[in-house]
Amino acid sequence: MTRLLLDTRVWTALAVAALAALPFAVDAYTLSSLSGIISLGLLAVSVAVLTGTAGLPSLGQVAPYAFGMYTTVVLIRAGVTEAPVLLLASGAAAAVFCAVIGPAVVRTRGVVFLMLTLAVGELTAQAAQQWKAVSGGTDGSGRLDPTVPFWGLEPLVDEPAVYWYCLAVAVVVTALAGWAARSTPGSLVRGVRDNEARMRADGHRVGAYLLGVFVFAGMIAGIGGSLLVTSQRMVFPSDVSFSISALVLMAVVIGGAASLGGALVGAGAVILLRDWTAAYLPGQGPLVLGALFIAAVYLMPGGLAGVLERIGLRRRKEAT
């Protein structure tokens, strides 16, 4: 019985079940926020994949997220609202973006990589504001039509339906990411993270592996962006601002960089705190967030995953 209690997969299954049951317990407004959180959660997973598996801490995943988001916006405006098309196109657009900038970005390591991705994130935020034709500038995209989950089905208008859709997509994508991390591609990338020179000396094409994980992570972020459009039905450049990047990185730090589940939980925690602050301490959002960053850096070296490891509730998977 204790074996069962300590198995991560049991907890994960329970968590997913609990999340799926939420629409019966909470009101529509909360559900709507939660759908938004799920979208950001996928962005956090994207960051966790790069940071944890590949050892490349990225401050710019909001860029492929934005690409995915605006691809969905453009498609819905053009009358295409079927979910499979939206998800595929958004993921693909984000992946292509990462494939284009990847060769330059992925040559760098450590600080230079951090700085480059920071620049990419910032530039995307600026671009979103300036490219009014697509984003609508600070006024936002305007109200968009609802997403249709599949040809012939009813559009997703009710909050519970939207929520389940987002949850389902997130669970599938995260499971896919987890599976990839545990199988050969994941091993190859983790090998590079552990000792790049050794991998090269053994004949591995390190650049290609890193580009692959960069594109894969971008695809995840792009799908997350599409989810935001489905759930809010109106998006603004502030949804892809640099502080979102930082927030998500914070979520990953809180969750424990190598843990995908932790990233999702961290995203939830951070967004809830932000919204709570907006409600009870209006205008102090950045202050509270900044204080949170500082606190998290000092108090949680391994993030939540690290805390859980110390209590023994989590198998120590590998060195981060």
């Binding site: 091993s187 983790r190 090998g191 552990d194 000792n195 020179a197 050794r198 991998m199 090269r200 000396a201 053994d202 004949g203 591995h204 094409r205 390190v206 590998e318 060195a319």
Partner: peptide, 23 residues
């Protein structure tokens, strides 16, 4: 580049042993 040489048949070790620690 190093990985091409490896495929041609050149192998090496490093002064500080460099196995992959998390494996």
């Amino acid at each position: 580049p190093a990985h091409r040489r490896s495929r041609l048949g050149i192998a090496r070790t490093f002064q500080t042993p460099a196995p992959l620690d998390s494996f």
